[in-house]
Design a protein around this nucleic acid. Structure first.
Length: 649
RNA sequence: GCGCCCGUAGCUCAGCUGGAUAGAGCGUCUGGCUACGAACCAGAAGGUCGGAAGUUCGAAUCUUUCCGGGCGCACCA
């Protein structure tokens, strides 16, 4: 609704200025510095001052006087040195919200979002959670603004990290496939936890014995890539089992996927070979005959690096001298497929059906009956750690080199900074810190060292904390209900924590902060949502029948002369513009911020107005409607954030 | 060495395309529950927006430079 009026104001000023001043400027509409100034502020007089050679204040006065009536606008004032402040017609604004149903228009084309993308060789940690929560929330934002989205989670099941764990089982510990299968089935200890420790042990062993590293890793990788033999079988067994663990962990957070494209199929279906031919044909890569990259196929650095010189020896190797392809090469093939440019497709089989009926598919080599189709997107977002921006640049350069400039432009590296650990949390975890580390604001996690906080451990701890609070406040509820709410609160706290920071902020993860359920946190928003729903329920239980029919623009206007109520309505009505802005800027933190501000606004409303005890029947109807508007907006914004609105807290 | 990111209140962070008196949470201090649930609310204290120069009617925001920090620059991903 706000945007509708905003557009009207913008258009009125645009045409008025065009007609009377014979010039055109971009009409900027801001939020006034202070709420008392009105609802919109236009600095347009400043922009015109130079061209018209007049004082801004004078121009503003002329504009305000000459522009005439605009539907939905009650008044315009000149303020400061030349601002034009716009005041809305409160009654008609409220009435328009009451009667209007905004239907989101669906946009054409499919957007592909790839996120999570965890190496299937150990348990997920907090860094992975940031990726998944950012990606999942962005997907929800896109869908809420009318986009069709396909969620992909790429599985690197043939990479070095999987090979290291396989080598650990096979060479280091002498385990057979049946031994490993027993570990997977062991309910005592989760398999991803077993691998977490084994990966750290294997890495340590490698560090102490570099020659063994080359031998074991090489042998294992070779077997996995060839796709047969015991080491290969072990690789698939481990990777598939870990993927199941990851899917389960992410499901706890409400994160689900549409399809898992796997690297093994990229290899076996010759995706790379096809891309390789195209790259060679278009001369995007060349065979190096001298220097340190002799015998490799490389992409010249001039293709992906600004200001790179011809002589600089920093070309990117795509195919190694032993003929194997690097990750970047495979990623170029994968990216081509995402846009439907490869001329090939995977086959797919259904991996599982989520409790809500949604199906998760996985790539496979053999054709399957009734298989779905994936890929072929109009736009692609890759949610990947900003440390990989160099490699993402290479991938995009690959698209450009093949002549796919449009697709390159619609290819976005949705980058985010890492999650590190606060020194205090390292101490709590029993991690030894060097004197140098102690001075730092954060310490980087390391999977190779087994240093980090496992996602499931963190979630368990959050639930435990929430459960204590819920128990102490809700003795009348059943154990099952309390547990469910505790889980919702824990996940709310966690998702909000991962979303409250903008993407390029390094998060120094701190247990005390993450476990905090007060202030700018998920549970604060949930609490407000619970209260809004509860008031509504109590009022209706008291025998009052909701009847918005008696709320016309004129009567609402009288209630809205109360500045506090007007500000409440305004805050509640601004979900759409902030959601749109957040989606355009690719910043889920903005949605989190809006939800928090909505909760702040409601808390104030809650304090100031007693809906249940309101003696004036019509005013009570109005307050009830406001409460319900808040409730609906909480529901929608929390849904975008992937946070549940509990029934009680 | 080259490239990218960051430096805003004691701490952790917002600040949309430059715009009016720079905001929030936490922490500190003062108040508010016989409750439409205090996981809340009201109020106070707290900032030369890292330094300097420039562009502009106007700079936390744009440019240059310096200082301080982070991350990249593999035949790993």
């Amino acid at each position: 609704m706000f945007q509708t009026v905003e557009n009207r104001v913008r258009e009125a000023f645009r045409s008025h200025i065009q007609n009377h001043y014979a010039t055109s400027v971009e009409i900027v509409i801001e939020e006034p510095k202070q709420a008392s100034f009105g609802e919109m502020a236009l600095p347009v007089a400043f922009q015109l001052a130079k061209a018209l050679k007049k004082a801004p204040r004078q121009i503003a006065s002329e504009l305000a006087a000459g522009i005439g009536a605009i539907e939905g606008v009650a008044a315009m004032e000149v303020a400061g040195n030349g601002y034009i402040n716009v005041r809305l017609d409160r009654g008609s604004y409220a009435h328009a919200i009451l009667t209007g149903a905004a239907a989101a228009d669906t946009k054409p084309g499919k957007i592909i979002v790839e996120h999570t993308n965890i190496n299937p060789n150990k348990a997920a940690h907090i860094g992975h959670l940031r990726n998944a929560v950012l990606g999942d929330t962005f997907v929800r934002m896109l869908r809420a603004t009318g986009n069709q989205v396909e969620v992909q989670n790429y599985i690197d099941n043939t990479g070095v990290q999987v090979a290291d764990v396989v080598a650990g089982f096979h060479f280091l510990e002498g385990k057979t496939i049946d031994d490993v299968r027993a570990l997977i089935d062991n309910p005592e200890r989760p398999f991803d936890y077993v691998c977490w420790d084994l990966y750290a042990r294997t890495s340590q062993h490698y560090d102490a014995n570099p020659e063994i590293k080359a031998k074991w890793r090489g042998e294992t990788l070779h077997a996995i890539e060839a796709g047969h033999g015991e080491l290969s079988d072990l690789g698939h067994l481990v990777a598939d089992a870990i993927v199941q663990c990851h899917i389960k962990t992410m499901l706890r957070l409400g994160v689900i996927y549409d399809v898992l494209p796997r690297e093994s199929e990229i290899l076996h279906l010759q995706f790379w070979a096809t891309a390789f031919e195209q790259l060679k044909e278009r001369k995007a890569i060349y065979f190096e005959t001298e220097g340190k990259a002799k015998g490799c196929w490389v992409m010249p650095s001039t293709a992906f690096k600004e200001g790179a010189s011809e002589e600089a020896d920093d070309n990117k190797i795509i195919v190694r001298s032993n003929g194997t392809v690097t990750y970047v090469g495979k990623d170029i093939a994968y990216q081509l497929w995402k846009f439907g440019l490869l001329g090939k497709d995977f086959h797919y089989k259904k991996l599982l059906t989520y409790a809500n009926g949604h199906e998760l598919w996985q790539s496979t080599v053999e054709p399957q009956p009734g298989e779905k189709k994936f890929g072929g997107g109009r736009e692609v977002y890759n949610v990947i750690d900003s440390r990989q921006s160099y490699l993402q640049d290479v991938v995009v350069a690959g698209l450009r080199a093949l002549g796919y400039n449009d697709q390159a432009d619609r290819s976005t590296h949705f980058a985010y900074e890492m999650v590190a650990l606060s020194p205090r949390t390292c101490v709590e975890l029993g991690i030894e810190l060097s004197d140098e580390d102690k001075k730092k604001s954060h310490v980087e996690v390391s999977g190779r060292k087994g240093l980090g906080v496992k996602a499931d451990d963190l979630i368990d701890k959050l639930i435990e904390n929430a459960k204590r609070e819920v128990d102490s406040r809700n003795a009348d509820r059943s154990e099952a209900e309390r547990l469910q709410v505790a889980q919702q609160i824990a996940i709310g706290a966690l998702r909000y924590f991962m979303l409250k920071y903008t993407r390029n902020t390094v998060i120094a993860f701190d247990f005390q902060e993450a476990l905090s359920f007060t202030g700018e946190a998920g549970p604060y928003v949930q609490y407000a949502a619970v209260r809004a729903a509860k008031i509504r329920g109590k009022v209706l239980d008291s025998g009052v029948v909701a009847n918005t029919g008696q709320l016309d623009a004129a009567s609402m206007n009288t209630f809205l002369t109360d500045e506090g109520l007007w500000q409440s309505l305004l805050a509640a009505s601004k979900l759409e513009p902030s959601l749109l802005r957040a989606t355009q800027s690719g910043e889920p933190a903005h949605v989190a911020k809006y939800a928090f501000q909505l909760a702040q606004s409601f808390s104030g409303f809650y304090q100031d107005h007693r809906v249940l005890e309101e003696p004036d029947a019509r005013r009570q109807q109005f307050l009830l409607w406001m409460t319900d508007l808040y409730r609906r907006q909480f529901e929608r914004s929390l849904d975008v954030l992937g946070i549940a609105a509990p029934e009680f807290m």
